[in-house]
Amino acid sequence: MSSISPGLAGARDTVPMLVGAAPFGLIFGALATSSHLTPAQTLAMSLLVFAGSSQFIAVGLFAAGTALPVLWLTTLVVNLRHALYSATLLPYARDWPLRWRLPLAFWLTDETFAVVEHRLRSGMVAGGAAYWLGSSLAMYGNWLLWTLLGIMVGQGIPGIAGWGLDFAMLATFTAIVAPQLKTRPALAAALVAGAVALWLRALPYQGGLMLASCAGIATGMLLDGKRKEAA
């Protein structure tokens, strides 16, 4: 651990996430170019937006001819969980200059959040910003590479969307969250969030995801408070 630089450590700890995101980049590149986007537009979306789920939804909305304000509103709502990530990481980043905080915010994905939050919480003293940057650049490079590969090969492979490649992300997120369920409040937060998300899965704009997340957070906090009172 101590023998390599924080930036490389951040990239290395992100490798499992790269594996999980790769198929999504591939499918995105393939779907977008076989739908309504040119290769340049497809790549630009990965380069500038860099948010997998909203990129997929946008491709669907382009195909449906949705009006711009609706597309933007959808982007806003689908990506709202990133505001929670932004708030969660602020206490660690508060003293860093804006020229670090702004680019790191641009690269703040689910995956980098999970890796970086875990590392910072377990008490990284120095090199936190470099660690975060390493994780970010690994995810960004990976996403661009697989989008590009999807653009190049995707149209030649019909039915790639039906291969079950979406399992990669599910497995990655499950493998990250499972080891974190070691305290009672965390376990309860996960169970409540999961149950509410399942119950509300049909809500539009991933509304169920936000409501379920808030329910889980409230549960964890409530039990956390009780535990502290008892202690």
């Binding site: 979406d166 992300m169 499950t174 965390a186 937060a189 996960a190 999961g194 998300a197 995801l209 889980g216």
Partner: peptide, 19 residues
């Protein structure tokens, strides 16, 4: 304290319906 539970809650909410 609430933000402490963000990772577990959001990831669980993402994962459970998919699984």
């Amino acid at each position: 304290r609430a933000l402490h539970y963000v990772p577990v809650a959001v990831l669980s909410a993402l994962v459970v319906p998919m699984a």
